[in-house]
Design a protein around this nucleic acid. Sequence first.
DNA 1: AACCAGGAGAGAG
DNA 2: CTCTCTCATGGT
Length: 225
Amino acid sequence: MQLSQLYTKLLDHFGKQGWWPAETRFEVIVGAMLTQRTNWRNAELAIKNLKDANMLSPSKIASADINALEQLIRPSGFYKQKAHRLKTISEYIINNNGTNKLKKRELSGLRKELLAIKGIGNETADSILLYAFGKPVFVIDAYTQRIFKRAGIVAEQTSYSKLQKFIEEKIKKNIRFYKDVNFYKEFHALIVLLGKIYCRSNPLCETCPVKCKFRKSRKKSLLFV
DNA sequence: AACCAGGAGAGAG
DNA sequence: CTCTCTCATGGT
């Protein structure tokens, strides 16, 4: 299956997602951090607590009492590390004169700086770049790896950066609107949606709208294929 | 490279 | 109610 076919199929089936309805860039960044190794529902609970406590700004978090911050974000799990990481990121944003200034920065330099922050790995960095700063990057996650492999877009799973490079090259060659950030946003959102609904168990896999070549697989669990 | 860092929710009993 | 399973990334 071609990359563009997959996108078309997903878009036809699910429609536009309009992902990450956050009120501010900072909220997107906080969400990206808090959803690490936790489902979005729990991350949302933590964000709501921060909002209700009027704490959802870099300066508030940077100056917050660490124990209070921990309690607010507790629903997202790993709250001690995450509280510390939120402070680190908030300080980084403050030192760089805010998220609007950061948005103006060039992609690869900004990406390197984000990755240098403890608590930001590839996926979180790219989620922030795409959804908070509107940079055209293709976010890779576990669903992406799995779906692309099953759809035959890639042969085997590789490292994050190799797969990303491969996909981004393909996009530039084959997708007409590759400069449109919304394409990257929508594609990733659609992949996650598909993964959540259809790629978790065998019965569901068989009813998947993307009729990939592993559709009729008889394995007990396809979760880690 | 294998392992560890919680908490929430759902399902079984 | 308690036990067990699922969810899902980054640092070491």
